[in-house]
Design a protein around this nucleic acid. Sequence first.
DNA 1: CTTAAGTTGCAAACGATTTGCAATTGAAAA
DNA 2: TTTTCAATTGCAAATCGTTTGCAACTTAAG
Lengths: 152, 152
Amino acid sequence: MKNCVHKHHKKKQELASLTGRLRREARKITSPRAAILEILRHHPHPLTIKEIFAELPKGGCDLATIYRAMQMLEKLGMVKRFDFGDGAARFELVGEGEDGHHHHLICTRCAGVVEIDECFPEEIERRIASVNGFAGVTHRLEFFGVCPGCQK
Amino acid sequence: MKNCVHKHHKKKQELASLTGRLRREARKITSPRAAILEILRHHPHPLTIKEIFAELPKGGCDLATIYRAMQMLEKLGMVKRFDFGDGAARFELVGEGEDGHHHHLICTRCAGVVEIDECFPEEIERRIASVNGFAGVTHRLEFFGVCPGCQK
DNA sequence: CTTAAGTTGCAAACGATTTGCAATTGAAAA
DNA sequence: TTTTCAATTGCAAATCGTTTGCAACTTAAG
């Protein structure tokens, strides 16, 4: 179950559109960045820094460069950071104008990932916020279990 | 908002009951362990290793000892590990027979924590599991927002 | 083509957590 | 109690993911 099922209809973004977003933010389009975006573009599921590094063409860039790129892309809202609780951050490209909020179902055996459409019920979240007087409440939510292939 | 609101009626467990659980598992009741349990007993909210370390009486034990103790207590199901996404694990004592599953509302400004009674709807989780053929599905869920005190 | 600001590689620094190992200590047995 | 041995601890070194300082190097604007 190393592959990923996608129920979200994420249109693969054009590289030009991505670099355009960068340019608009007065960021330089360097070859490491183009290569990283290219990889993210082709992987609709969350990738760790090391996975991106591994996908990088021969003589790719330094790990630090990827870390810096992801920080910056996250700040610009172009990628969303996910935490599966295993100590390594994962990143996924976010469509223009979208916020990328969604969840995953992760196999605790093979680490396979399935994107989930369901989200925590808004009314309940709203109630939790108001009952406690909190503002701007969001949540971090991930599901864990054993995938079909790992159950035997 | 450095204090914690508790809507859960967690009865503070007796130290004797805790050490009894250890003894039953053929684990030694050492002074570091007793001190750690004593601290957890008095703090119904999730504590980081460093917080436990700081609470430790003068000449407490080594950090490594706390790490080892928490690993072991977690394995025995006596503490539950939480991840607020800030890189430091937090631990909370779990009542005998309970599984400690619950969630928190965390202030992104002051890091204050409120325990939440709500959980992700079971029927939806069940549907997510069956639709994807996953078994033994659980979830990790935490809420984030700005607490009343930090909103001004 | 020049140039200044933005970027990169590299190595060192970090913070959380783990681990090897010799010295110490519970607690079961004598 | 005292003996005895496995469980446990302290300490330092090792890991791991991530960040950062800095000099060398590009990109993109003029």
